[in-house]
Design a protein around this nucleic acid. Sequence first.
DNA 1: GTCTATATAAAGATAGAC
DNA 2: GTCTATCTTTATATAGAC
Lengths: 189, 189
Amino acid sequence: MDTKSLIIEIATKLFQQKGYMGVGLSEILKACNISKGSLYHHFPNGKEELLVACLQSLNEVITLDIENIFDQHPTTKEATQAMIEKLIVHFETEGTIVGYTFSSIVSEMASLSEPVRNACSLLYSKMQRIYSNKLVADGFSTETAHSIALTMVATIEGGMLLCLTQNASDPLKTISLVLPNILQEFKKE
Amino acid sequence: MDTKSLIIEIATKLFQQKGYMGVGLSEILKACNISKGSLYHHFPNGKEELLVACLQSLNEVITLDIENIFDQHPTTKEATQAMIEKLIVHFETEGTIVGYTFSSIVSEMASLSEPVRNACSLLYSKMQRIYSNKLVADGFSTETAHSIALTMVATIEGGMLLCLTQNASDPLKTISLVLPNILQEFKKE
DNA sequence: GTCTATATAAAGATAGAC
DNA sequence: GTCTATCTTTATATAGAC
């Protein structure tokens, strides 16, 4: 693998785990076994440029992964539960959450950097669109599907936060059971 | 107000907005108009001790606030929607989310500091308990109430993240409409 | 209890040799 | 394309005067 891809891959994991501010360049360099000069050759504008590249890479990886899961299951309910199960297994084996989340990056950077906020927004939209399409296939109206999909994104992202906080996978397990409840029409008031 | 309380109040807002790593001591000092010596007099163990104090303070404030809202509304559904409405109004007037969230702190610190992780865990538990009690009053079994309440915490926290990301209050508005769907019994599989 | 001055380490970034 | 060496700024933290 070329150096640039290596940097992106490793930095992505670190940013997801510790947030943008929480990871120093030196930590990335050490994990990649490269020098400052090399990193700045590939990312002349430094850390923030690297972060945006990581978010774009994450976009592709996550999209591919989620789309696969959603193609392999007949309904949104089953696909969602399979997806959450995958998150749980990863958390229980690796001890960290590096799945479909980047909450720390959002909360740190959304108000500080427009490019970063935009990249994060794209990522959430992509997930929402995959869910939404499946919901339409399930028979929901596009508007309802859109709303339910957004809520799914929020609940799963929040669930990962709760797992981190409790240092246990129980929250996602519970959410996997409760979440199907939202897969219904709702009243607009 | 005494200096210690002032520091806690201002630091809490900053930590919520920018995360733990994202806020330097100097920024806190400037916002409080005090000196380093003063801060270290009140928090001899430095920044992390201050953060834990902020989380404890946040615990009291949030608990009081949410309990008030939940006492003023007959059912969980109405109370929840009133609570979310309050978050939306705050976001639209202040432009920031400093409500019942501390997601950036969780994601940055959960794996780095046990005291911080614990303080965050307590806070989420407290919210969950308030929701849960109201759900029991609504007629749910304690076990179901517990699960639904956890999902509510996750969804609302995730909803605030989405608002930050989109820089709009729409996500919370949508969630306010969809969330009542989870207020039902669900199958345990 | 608050201040200034200082210590020390680490951050992000750059220059230039190879 | 990768390295070492260096620059500059900022970070957290401490010491000691008032």
